[in-house]
Write a protein that binds this DNA or RNA. Structure first.
Lengths: 225, 225
DNA sequence: TTTTTTGCAAAGAATTTGCAGCGCG
DNA sequence: CGCGCTGCAAATTCTTTGCAAAAAA
């Protein structure tokens, strides 16, 4: 069993660099910085120390979107905003009315220790980057954007925006349509149609009276209204 | 460029199994289930399809605590609760007053697309598991637990609970103390002391008049009050 | 028939670990 | 002067990719 945590030079530099940057660096971006001061340090040491320091409560390990873990020198409770394009993470101050009060226990019997609130979007730099080039490169991911947070908002009756669009298009049609008819009637690319159809069929909102022909069902009309 | 998404047998089974489980499976736990129906399917196919289906908006890829990505058949906007011990993920219904309203843009210039709210805690099964054995195995991680959510709550002046405890102990002492004195005066194990001290020294709240001896500074007393 | 998808194996990214020696307390 | 820490390399874990064969539309 370990008895004490020693403050080695490496550990000190890691801590110091983490304190200096206001970004919420990943282990290896921090490693790059530390390496300038301690060229012989290894990435493993950085990982090990970040783990140890966060266990000891000196720094905070963040659970944030994106592949890599991030670390924060600021122990004060605060929330973050994540850029879905460049993955940068900034702090975010919630106004008091936006705080969520923490229930002690939820109905499923969980003992609740805390919660994390993370906004996502596009940072100013990426917005600029998007504006300049000839073609806007669409944000392919995070498609079904909720308009408000928490539960509620977002998709109606468990339908994604795309599914809803397809369903509405079919509702306007009085006979069975093919994928191309649907594509023409919606903003979707043909590539995306069959997939939506399959989902809708599975939910019983769309039927297929003939091969590659689709029409809305009674339930489908109900779901729309 | 792909024009259509084909509904292969594998894809159908993956979708079907994902629809059947109420947990929010990781790719490989879903793979284990699917393999019972399609023994020759490969993990890569499962990964590929989960990616494709979530891009198409038929399923949802979750950004959740824990190493592995998770997938959800339920497209409706909802939040999750994560068990820090067994990593299981359940749905969580927020009461309406707990919803966060989504600002269109924050002060840093982010274009905000949405937000994720994730509670963490201990699920009922793990609570039982913890109650039974001889020794409670402490939750080492997620140490500095905020008592409320959003910003605010939690640690005072950027001090972790441990740092604050150490600082308070030093405040009661009229001469410089060693680590062991501090350990005796607090609920902390000796192992954790030196680490807290170093953090406090860095913040100027603690001074070290002699080797291995520590005392609170003026700023330290201010921080406590 | 034509294009997408699969299974396999191998690559890749992020993180962790074993170990021998170094150095802090 | 002992135990914790480091650097290195190799191992792990999770996920993605290239390719030839198989399967949808």
């Amino acid at each position: 069993m370990k008895d004490t945590l020693r403050m080695t030079h490496q550990r000190e530099v890691i801590l110091d660099e983490l304190g200096k940057v206001k970004t919420h660096p990943t282990a290896d971006s921090l490693y790059e910085r530390v390496k300038k001061r301690l060229p012989r340090i290894s990435l493993a040491t950085v990982y090990r120390n970040l783990e140890i320091l966060s266990e000891a409560g000196m720094i905070r390990k963040l659970e944030i979107s994106g592949r890599q873990k991030r670390f924060d020198w600021d122990l004060e409770q605060h929330d973050h905003i994540f850029c879905v394009q460049c993955q940068r993470v900034d702090n975010l101050e919630l106004k008091s009315q936006q705080r969520i009060s923490l229930p002690t226990e939820d109905d499923k019997g969980y003992q609740i220790d805390g919660c994390r609130v993370e906004f996502y979007g596009v940072c100013p730099q990426c917005q600029k980057k998007n504006a300049n080039p000839k073609k806007k490169r669409g944000t392919k991911k995070m498609d079904c954007k909720p308009k408000s947070c928490g539960s509620g908002g977002g998709c109606k009756a468990g339908l994604s925006e795309r599914q809803q669009e397809v369903l509405e298009a079919l509702a306007k049609c009085d006979k069975a349509c093919g994928s191309k008819d649907i594509a023409a009637a919606t903003s979707l690319e043909p590539k995306q149609i069959s997939c939506q159809i399959t989902a809708l069929k599975k939910k019983g909102l769309v039927a297929s009276p003939a091969r590659c022909k689709y029409e809305i069902t009674q339930d489908g009309r109900k779901a729309l209204s």
